[in-house]
Structure formats: structure tokens, C-alpha cells
């Protein structure tokens, strides 16, 4: 019985951090009616030193225009492996993109910053249109972008 309990305790201890270490987070982005083609959006995170950490999502229907997400491209070096499995369609004018992800708890209240780049074919690019510290207190508080993004908020 005692070895069984010890094994159970060990496996629980090993499993618990991965279960407790992530929270479901919903990123909601409402675009303005800018009237052009669907917008490309890149969501990525930098740390307290301003260094690129990784990408959370990319809405981009055509790979060829991804370099127009200029800050993301500069931070990531244009490494397409960064967005494998986390890409979706670009977002039409006036539409809303809702992305649901399990994000590491360590991203919040630890000096990390969320950036959103936006780009539309034939329109000016809008790098780092949203720059927002990732905090639990900031959840569900909408912010406006200066270009294509009418409002953005994250909920957890």
C-alpha cells in the first residue's frame, strides 16, 4: 500500500504543474470598418527587456504578406516555424476575431507585454498597433488601436 501511495504522490506532483500552469485566455479583436481587404494580425509577446518571446496567434491568409507585419517580422526574424499551428484566416473589415488559447500562467503579472501588428493589402501597415502589459487586472478591459483595431480585450 505504501509504495502505491508513494507512486501516486509522485505522479501527482509531476502532473500538477502542467495542469495548474496554464489558463484559458480569450483574445477578442474588433476591427474598424476601414473598407479594405481582410486585415492580417500578429499577436506576440515580449519580455520585460523588450526581447521577443514568442507568437500567440497570426491571422494571415497569405504567407507572402506576412512581412508586412513589420514589427513581428523584425522581432521574430520572419521565422515561419514560430507560427506553425497558430495561424488562421485574415479578418475582414468590421469583423471580430476571437481566439481561445491555453496560456502559461507565468505570462501574467511578470512584465510580459502583448503586441498586435496589423496590416492590410494596399494600406499602410500598423506595427504594434496594440501594446499591452499582460496582467490579471487588465483582463476584460478593452483598449483601442490607432489604426485598424476598434477594440481589443483579453478574458481569462
Amino acid at each position: 500500500m505504501r509504495p502505491l501511495l508513494a507512486t501516486l504522490a509522485l505522479t501527482t506532483a509531476l502532473t500538477a504543474p502542467s495542469l495548474a500552469g496554464a489558463t484559458e485566455v480569450t483574445l477578442k479583436t474588433q476591427l474598424r470598418n476601414y473598407g479594405g481587404k481582410p486585415a492580417f494580425l500578429a499577436y506576440y509577446v515580449t519580455d520585460q527587456t523588450g526581447a521577443y518571446v514568442g507568437t500567440l496567434w497570426m491571422a494571415a491568409s497569405k504567407a507572402r504578406y506576412i512581412p508586412d507585419l513589420t514589427d513581428w517580422y523584425r522581432y521574430s526574424g520572419g521565422d515561419m516555424n514560430e507560427i506553425s499551428g497558430i495561424t488562421g484566416a485574415s479578418v475582414g473589415s468590421g469583423r471580430t476575431l476571437t481566439v481561445t488559447l491555453d496560456l502559461a500562467d507565468t505570462l501574467f503579472d511578470a512584465g510580459y507585454t502583448l503586441h498586435i501588428d496589423a496590416a492590410v493589402e494596399h494600406y499602410p501597415a500598423s506595427p504594434s498597433e496594440i501594446v499591452l502589459p499582460l496582467t490579471r487586472e487588465g483582463a476584460s478591459k478593452p483598449v483601442s488601436g490607432r489604426g485598424y483595431i476598434e477594440s481589443f480585450s483579453y478574458a481569462m
Binding site: S18, G21, A22, T23, V45, V53, G54, T55, L56, N81, E82, I83, S84, G85, I86, L101, D102, L103, A104, T106, L107
Partner: peptide, 9 residues
């Protein structure tokens, strides 16, 4: 997703 430490397993 990429294994970059940002996502849950």
C-alpha cells in the same frame, strides 16, 4: 502550437 513555453500542454 510551437513549444515556446507560452502555451499549455
Amino acid at each position: 502550437p510551437p513549444d515556446n513555453g507560452l502555451f499549455g500542454k
